[in-house]
C-alpha cells in the first residue's frame, strides 16, 4: 500500500480546516485510489471505478473527524475505498437485476407491451370518432354486424329490410367508414 507520508499531515491539517492541505491530499489521492480500485475490482468498468473513487472521496469528506493522526493515512483511505466500493458495486448489481437494456430496441418496437396497448387505444379512438361521423342507419348496421356479430338475416329482420338491402347498406357503411378514417379501400373493417 504505497502512499505519501505527507498524507497524514495533510489529513490532520484538513481536520483543522486547512483547504490547501486538503486539496493537495485529494489531488494526490485520486490516482492512487484509482489504482487500488482497479487492483481490487479488476472486472469493474472504467465508469464503475470512477464512481467508486468519487464515493470514496465523498465518504472521506464526511468521515474526516474519524481520522486519528497517530495512525497512518493509507489504511484509512483504503478502508473507505474498500467499504464504499463494495457498496457501489452491490448497488449497481441490485439495479442491473431490475433493469432491461433498451439500447438495441427500436423505438416503436412491439416488444414493449406499452406500445401495443397504446396503439390499440389510439386505433379504437380513431374508429369511434369515424363511426360518430356516419349517418345513424350506417352506425346501426355496423354495430349490429361488426360489434354484436349478428347474422344478416337477424339484422334484416330487426331493421325490416331484405337481406340483399342489408348487404348493400353494410357495404356502403364500410366504404364511408374507410373514407372517414382515410383508409385505402380493401384494408381493414
Amino acid at each position: 500500500m504505497v502512499a505519501d507520508p505527507a498524507w497524514s499531515e495533510w489529513l490532520a491539517a484538513a481536520q483543522e480546516g486547512d483547504r490547501r492541505a486538503y486539496g493537495r491530499l485529494l489531488r494526490a489521492a485520486v490516482p492512487v485510489l484509482r489504482g487500488w480500485a482497479r487492483a481490487r475490482w479488476p472486472a469493474a468498468s472504467a465508469a464503475d471505478i470512477e464512481d467508486i473513487v468519487q464515493e470514496t472521496l465523498l465518504a472521506l469528506h464526511r468521515s474526516l473527524a474519524l481520522y486519528d493522526p497517530a495512525r497512518p493515512a493509507a489504511p484509512f483511505l483504503f478502508g473507505i475505498l474498500k467499504l464504499r466500493g463494495a457498496d457501489v458495486l452491490r448497488q449497481r448489481h441490485r439495479h442491473s437485476r431490475r433493469e432491461t437494456p433498451i439500447d438495441d430496441a427500436d423505438e416503436t418496437s412491439v416488444a414493449f407491451d406499452t406500445n401495443a396497448v397504446q396503439e390499440s387505444h389510439v386505433e379504437q379512438a380513431r374508429l369511434r370518432a369515424a363511426i360518430a361521423l356516419l349517418p345513424p342507419r350506417d352506425r346501426e348496421i355496423l354495430e349490429m354486424l361488426k360489434l354484436r356479430q349478428m347474422s344478416l338475416r337477424d339484422v334484416a329482420g330487426q331493421l325490416h329490410m331484405s337481406v340483399p338491402a342489408v348487404k348493400i347498406a353494410s357495404f356502403r357503411a364500410v366504404r364511408r367508414l374507410r373514407a372517414a378514417m382515410k383508409w385505402p379501400s380493401g384494408t381493414g373493417a
Binding site: A14, Q15, G17, R19, Y22, G23, L57, L58, H61, A65
Partner: peptide, 8 residues
C-alpha cells in the same frame, strides 16, 4: 469538497 471543508 475543497471549498466545502470546515474544521472538524
Amino acid at each position: 469538497l475543497e471549498n466545502a471543508l470546515t474544521p472538524v
